[in-house]
């Protein structure tokens, strides 16, 4: 990046470090922080949507749908989330390929599972083997996002269905007394009021989501953990910038990044809950009222 970087081996410590920290590989590492933030930005709303659908399904009057919703909300209670992170991407990948296989190659007569192989016709492969590298990477990232959304959707469904139950029963009874239908009462009375009850759970969920992002590495995405291992490993003198094993420093940098991220979001949520408690008939709202008076 700087002109004096042309011959790293002749540089002093400070300049060497400046050059080392601005190589192309290092910038890939810096960009991967963006990958993590992108994952958070995409997953949080998606998980909320999944959670809302799950919580709604768990309250449905149609029994099979309710069972499905209850199964979805309770699956994360007993089963470690990492199992889902390993399972969902492969399962989805095979599901998509199988569906495409059925649609695109109707005259294929061999079974899809042959011993230890999963065989679909070439046209059904996802992504196509001729596709450029970035498509492969985005497809992997999309599967990872979907896995995160499904798992955290289940967590969010737990929080939201608890919040729906916390809305005072009298409010719903009043709505019924006014002759609102189930749907009207749900959308006009329950949904607007449930958020203040859901916020503590959702803020905890956000913290858990932030702390789950390094698991992207297990899904094969080139995230910060991948680059930290890659760049930190000891480099021999065949490399332009030889150095011993620096992985611990890279991981310490990640630790600081996560500590900052969690403590900043903690502060944001504290503010948000203050804002939402204004004028509410809760202990927190009462405290705000007294402080102002």
């Amino acid at each position: 990046m700087f002109e004096f970087c042309s011959d790293p081996s002749a540089l002093g410590d400070l300049k060497w470090m400046a050059c080392y920290l601005t190589t192309g590989k290092q910038f890939a590492f810096y960009w991967s922080f963006g990958t993590v933030l992108l994952l958070l930005a995409v997953t949080a709303p998606a998980a909320l949507a999944f959670g809302f659908a799950g919580a709604m399904a768990a309250r449905a009057r149609f029994a099979p749908l309710r069972w499905l919703g209850l199964a979805y909300t309770s699956m994360v209670r007993g089963i470690p989330d990492i199992i889902f992170f390993l399972f969902v991407p492969i399962a989805l990948d095979q599901l998509f390929e199988w569906l495409r296989h059925r649609a695109l190659c109707p005259d294929w007569d061999q079974p899809v599972r042959q011993g230890n192989d999963f065989v679909v016709c070439a046209a059904a492969k996802l992504p196509q083997s001729s596709a450029p590298q970035w498509i492969h990477e985005s497809y992997g990232f999309a599967l990872a996002v979907l896995a995160f959304a499904i798992v955290f959707g289940a967590f969010a469904a737990n929080v939201l269905s608890g919040a729906m139950k916390a809305v005072p029963r009298a409010q719903m009874e009043t709505a019924e007394a006014y002759g609102m239908t189930h749907g009207q009462a749900f959308w006009r009375i329950m949904v607007p009021q449930m958020w203040v009850y859901a916020l503590p759970g959702l803020s905890n969920l956000w913290q858990i989501l932030v702390k789950a992002t390094p698991l992207l590495f297990l899904l094969g995405v080139e995230d910060i953990v991948y680059w930290a291992r890659e760049l930190g490993g000891s480099k021999t003198s065949t490399f332009a910038y030889p150095h011993p094993d620096w992985r611990i420093w890279y991981f310490l940098a990640l630790l600081v990044f996560y500590l900052l991220l969690t403590s900043v979001s903690e502060r944001v949520f504290a503010r948000l809950s203050r804002r939402l408690s204004h004028g509410q008939a809760t202990a927190a709202g009462e405290k705000l009222r007294k402080a102002a008076a």
Binding site: V210, K211, A212, T213, P214, L215, F217, V225, A228, R229, D245, R247, I248, F251, L252, L254, L255, Y258, L259, T262, S263
Partner: peptide, 21 residues
């Protein structure tokens, strides 16, 4: 703060690297 604010996954990595060193 440090142990609750950072991912367990990163803690494992750091601990392993530290023990190796």
């Amino acid at each position: 703060f440090v142990f609750r604010g950072s991912p367990l996954f990163i803690q494992f990595f750091i601990a392993y690297q530290a023990f190796v060193l």
